[in-house]
Design a protein around this nucleic acid. Structure first.
Length: 311
DNA sequence: TAGGCCATCTGGTCCT
DNA sequence: AGGACCAGATGGCCTA
């Protein structure tokens, strides 16, 4: 029985699209935006209408009325603060769940996280793609698989996902001391048949040997694709032509299937994905409402994918 | 500087 | 009454 590791991370990290890791620093120090301060000040001093509407106003005795109003005021203030804290925790839980989701969809990276909306879209497409495989029982061609995964995704995300599915993992996870760029969802790391060794940069469970790590597409097949090597390794780049008006490819392999569609065309003009660099050192707390904390060093990665120009 | 993305606060609504 | 959920508003950070 295959169980997905939907364990909630302990950290309170959230993320942003192709950006670096973010960490709210509410547990480091309370930071409020100007808006937040203004609103909290409002909470500390409830509206006049609220006080005017109080039944205490009808009561006789100025001192007594003032005491009751103050008590009510304090209570309103406390409830608002508590509600804010609950809402923060709720959103943190939601973000943790999103982080868990990021780990089980293709193209998981600690340093280049997908945005919330892109994570949800990719997850939906991934579920759809897997469902299709289960229902048809057929091995999909890589192009169809990638197309399904990238349906509705933004162009940068499409490039990233396509690159993840095409590039050899060694290019991304063999960097000593660097973060991993795992092409496999967490469940495959934990349940893969050739589990051996571990990747300290990933912080997770053991990884499959790099040599057998070809991508989520191969994970779906009965046997690893014959062409597991990255085009970067083989150096067989080629110009592209249209395919279904979406992705590009040119050649067909001996089996009639598209040969390395979506291969990175490093020497040709095309779209590229470049993670946003970190301006601040790791662990530093950024000023501002979000209390963003940089968690990972800047790491540059270029993925060029030839795509059709937008209509 | 604009746009994207994010965290946070807030008040309303619904449910227990 | 109180908590969960939701959506709007706001402002900060970052990249192009």
């Amino acid at each position: 029985m295959l169980t997905l590791p939907f364990d909630e991370p302990t950290s309170h990290q959230t993320s942003s699209p192709f950006r670096t890791s973010w960490t709210t620093n509410q547990f480091v120090k309370p930071v409020k935006s100007k808006r937040g301060r203004a609103l909290e000040e409002d909470a500390l001093e409830p509206r006049r209408a609220d006080k005017d509407g109080d039944e205490e106003k009808k009561e006789a005795g100025g001192s007594h009325k003032k005491t009751l109003s103050q008590a009510r005021l304090d209570r309103v203030r406390l409830r608002r603060i508590e509600a804010n804290a609950r809402e923060r925790n709720r959103m943190h839980g939601l973000n943790n769940a999103l982080d868990s989701l990021r780990k089980v969809v293709p193209c998981y990276s600690k340093t280049q996280k997908l945005s919330k909306i892109e994570t949800l879209r990719l997850a939906k497409n991934y579920i759809w793609a897997l469902s299709e495989i289960l229902s048809t029982g057929k091995k999909p061609d890589l192009l169809t698989f990638v197309q399904t995964l990238c349906r509705g995704l933004s162009q940068p995300t499409t490039n990233l996902v396509a690159g993840c599915l095409q590039l050899n993992a060694r290019r991304f996870i063999s960097e000593p001391g660097g973060e991993s760029f795992s092409l496999y969802p967490a469940f495959y790391r934990n349940h893969g048949p050739e589990v051996a060794g571990s990747n300290p940069g990933d912080g997770g469970g053991p990884l499959r040997p790099f040599g057998s790590l070809c991508g989520p597409y191969e994970a779906l097949c009965d046997s690893p694709a014959s062409d597991c090597a990255s085009p970067l390794d083989t150096g067989t780049f080629s110009p592209s032509s249209n395919f279904n008006g979406f992705f590009s490819l040119k050649h067909e392999g001996a089996d009639g299937l598209p040969e390395l569609p979506l291969r990175p065309l490093l020497d040709q003009p095309g779209l590229f994905v470049r993670p946003r660099p970190l301006r601040h050192p790791p662990g530093s707390v950024l000023p501002g409402a979000g209390g963003i904390k940089q968690a990972h060093p800047y790491r540059e990665l270029f993925i060029k994918i030839q795509l059709n120009p937008p209509p």
